[in-house]
């Protein structure tokens, strides 16, 4: 409540973001990026040298030049894009549907302690189970298309969101709640204007993890059986013992995951403006 502590964030908003004071001993940002890139090259060079000197068997470890060649091939022929698009769609759908169910379930159980108590052991059991093992069943149920991957992603995302929202609903500020009630909010208005927005701020705090989970669901699903997607690309390469293509697939996957995470950060920045963290 004190003026001093509360005026701090205001001044941070009003003035352009200040960079933290440079720590002694750390090189500048540009130098750091250069060093990081150099490290990447060094890793590739080591890999290359170890394979060329036959210290590592090329059959199992591949040839970095051929791996990069493979990636360039995929991009030039455009072959990789259909797979990227498939995995992206599966990830996004798994993410969105998982969030929707997670929010609905979290709000519902958060508001009805009786149901929450009743379902408690089952929720714990479901959460404790490595849900990836459900993958084969989903493929049997929903086929080799994207549905089975989305469903797997949803089961993974759901619990992350569910637990956060459940917690969020239970920890809604009692004063904010009492205030809304005094202002005349009925039950559904309280749900819409207090519980759900409050829960959403918890969803935002788990955005990265949710997207990661949806991505894992998509790729694992593709691994288990599919006809498209980056997981499929790797699976296919594996079945022909093309270790270079496997590594190429893993690299593409990594870059894709990085891009996904970066875009979440961007979305987050837009959405979280005006929300306390």
């Amino acid at each position: 409540m004190s003026e001093i502590s509360t005026s701090l964030p205001t001044s941070a908003v009003a003035t352009p973001r200040r960079r933290p004071v440079k720590k002694a001993g750390l090189p500048s940002r540009g130098t750091m990026v250069a060093l990081q890139i150099a490290l990447l090259f060094a890793a590739f060079a080591t890999w290359f040298a170890l394979v060329k000197l036959k210290i590592l068997p090329v059959f199992f470890f591949g040839d970095p030049v051929l791996v990069l060649q493979q990636i360039v091939d995929w991009v030039v022929t455009g072959e990789v894009f259909v797979h990227l698009a498939t995995t992206l769609i599966e990830t996004i759908l798994g993410f969105l549907i998982g969030i929707a169910f997670g929010v609905a379930g979290g709000v519902w159980l958060g508001l009805s302690p009786l149901t929450a108590a009743l379902l408690d052991p089952y929720i714990k059991a479901f959460n404790a189970m490595p849900r990836v093992v459900l993958g084969p069943i989903f493929i049997v149920w929903f086929g080799l298309g994207i549905t089975s991957k989305v469903v797997l992603g949803v089961t993974l995302v759901f619990f992350v969101v569910f637990f956060n929202v459940f917690q969020g609903v239970r920890e809604v500020s009692p004063v904010v709640l009492a205030n809304a009630r005094m202002l005349g909010a009925n039950r559904s208005q309280l749900l819409r204007t207090v519980y759900i927005p409050s829960a959403m701020s918890w969803v935002f705090s788990s955005l990265h993890m949710s997207v990661g989970m949806a991505f894992v669901g998509a790729v694992i699903g593709e691994y288990l059986g599919s006809s498209r997607g980056i997981g499929y690309l790797i699976l296919q390469a594996e079945s022909t013992f093309d270790v270079n293509a496997v590594f190429a697939g893993i690299l593409v996957l990594t870059v894709f995951a990085l891009l996904l995470d970066t875009s979440v950060t961007l979305v987050e920045r837009r959405l979280i403006v005006g929300r306390p963290t």
Binding site: M1, S173, V175, V176, A178, N179, A180, M182, L183, G184, A185, N186, Q189, T193, V194, P197, S198, M200, S201, G274, R275, P276
Partner: peptide, 27 residues
């Protein structure tokens, strides 16, 4: 009755204006 709470009771996810109009919205 209208109640002005001792503790902070504004909805943190709403702007000043939309906090002020919350009750009218409920109405």
């Amino acid at each position: 009755a209208g109640y002005l709470f001792q503790a902070d009771a504004l909805m943190p996810w709403r702007t000043a204006l939309s906090n002020v109009t919350a009750g009218l919205e409920y109405r």
